[in-house]
Amino acid sequence: MAKSKIWGAVAQFENPAELVHGVEAIRGAGYTNIEAYSPFPIHGMEKVLGLSGSKVPWITLFGGLCGFSLGTWLQWWTGAVDYPVVIGGKPLFAIESSVPIMFELTVLLSAFGTLAGMMILNGLPRPHHPLDGYAPFRRVTDDKFFISIESDDPKFDALAAQAALEQAGGTNVALVEA
């Protein structure tokens, strides 16, 4: 059996303040592909991690525009092309009577786009994660905090990364296999 690939290095921290300081120290050491794990959201964490803005709004906009176009086309094609029936003396296609459909489909596909975009960008659903094999990580949903440095970080070196995590105040430092 081939030797499995190293996914990254991980360490445990005891509280949100340590976690934030740890991330600052590791980013200070030049690592970029890092991730922080916490049982609850920590305000300001996204700034410490240097995360850029989310791309989900663009997907939402795209979904909304698709819904708007689809709604308009649906109203026009069904009402005026495929099955033209005059109802109540109204035009076969009119903006006025189409607005509710255009609006609802805009909202619907925006919502689908938002949900799907969030899932895809987060890599969800994800039934297995390399950190699942790291025993202390079970407490990430309870009272422990973790930082990982992934092996595709350009600066990654198994020993140096572990040393950096330890220097940043981490305990239970370990290498995790992919």
Binding site: G88, G89, K90, E96, S97, V99, P100
Partner: peptide, 12 residues
């Protein structure tokens, strides 16, 4: 605003 206009347009 549109709801008001819309119902009046439909009712005619």
């Amino acid at each position: 605003s549109f709801s008001q206009y819309f119902l009046i347009w439909y009712g005619n």
